[in-house]
Design a binder for these strands. Structure first.
Lengths: 143, 143
DNA sequence: GTCCGTGCAAATCGTTTGCACGGGG
DNA sequence: CCCCGTGCAAACGATTTGCACGGAC
């Protein structure tokens, strides 16, 4: 994710006020590539700023998505909204047991649909998700 | 999806009772490749059998997943659980505007991670999701 | 001084759970 | 006749909404 200064500048450019809450949220996100959930981010903001409200965190996250510096993770459900600080095209590797999600930065060749296959859709992007077990969960697997 | 007879036999094999509710749910699913949500299926069962309870539909769907004749769609969130009558490996094409989801049955070559990229994960499967606009939503797009 | 952003509370949405009755085997 | 499956109602977790006060600009 970009630097704090870049992000703050972006807020100013878009007439968004720079509040202490937003500053904390941005600082936490900058170092976070764990694809946290909205509520997970809220919990971590809480630790630094015990009086924040959930609403503020949720609002800010939605605004950051609008600004294009955060992306919603679409491919895995079940834990609530997850956010991705990497907004460019990339792929994901997901542990089906502990729900850890890591980035795969490679570009795969040949993932292109023929005109018949697209069924008239205008394709904007594609994403590959690999499902598996992370090393820790493999150890825990005894069944 | 399999035929009704096959599915009923499968229920019997697993000591699951064949109730009128389950029969209706199966009949609806057999002809459905629209990746419906749990609640959408419930609504359609309601139309045929106005006294079904949501609980029954949700329970049955979960059991069908256990039996392996239904799969949960993982790649798109936001509408609640969606189910897929196609349980084998395949890919998806998703309209980001109206959330229609259609199947891509092709196998793509070369979607394999190097040992370094897998980060120790044991990969079980992968799935490609294409995001775009369906023909209808392209027409509606004026912005 | 103006609004935008915040925090609280309540509402909402989809899903799950507890429990007692009734029908399928 | 036993017990699984059902239906109801309540619980639940994550997210959204309405609203009034307070602080960023």
């Amino acid at each position: 994710m970009e630097s704090l200064e870049t992000l703050l500048a972006l807020l100013r450019q878009n007439d968004l006020k720079i509040t202490p809450q937003r500053r904390v949220i941005l600082e936490l996100l900058i170092e976070d590539d764990s694809h946290p959930t909205a509520d997970g981010i809220y919990q971590r903001v809480l630790a630094v700023m015990p009086d924040v409200s959930r609403t503020t965190v949720y609002n800010t996250l939605r605004e950051l998505v609008h600004l294009g510096v955060l992306a919603e993770v679409q491919e895995v459900s079940g834990d609530g909204l997850r956010y991705d600080t990497r907004t460019g095209p990339h792929h994901h590797l997901f542990c089906t047991r502990c729900h850890t999600l890591i980035d795969i930065i490679r570009d795969f060749e040949g993932i292109i649909l023929s005109p018949e296959e697209t069924a008239g859709y205008r394709i904007m992007k594609h994403q590959v998700t690999f499902y598996g077990l992370c090393p820790e969960c493999q150890k825990r697997e005894i069944n």
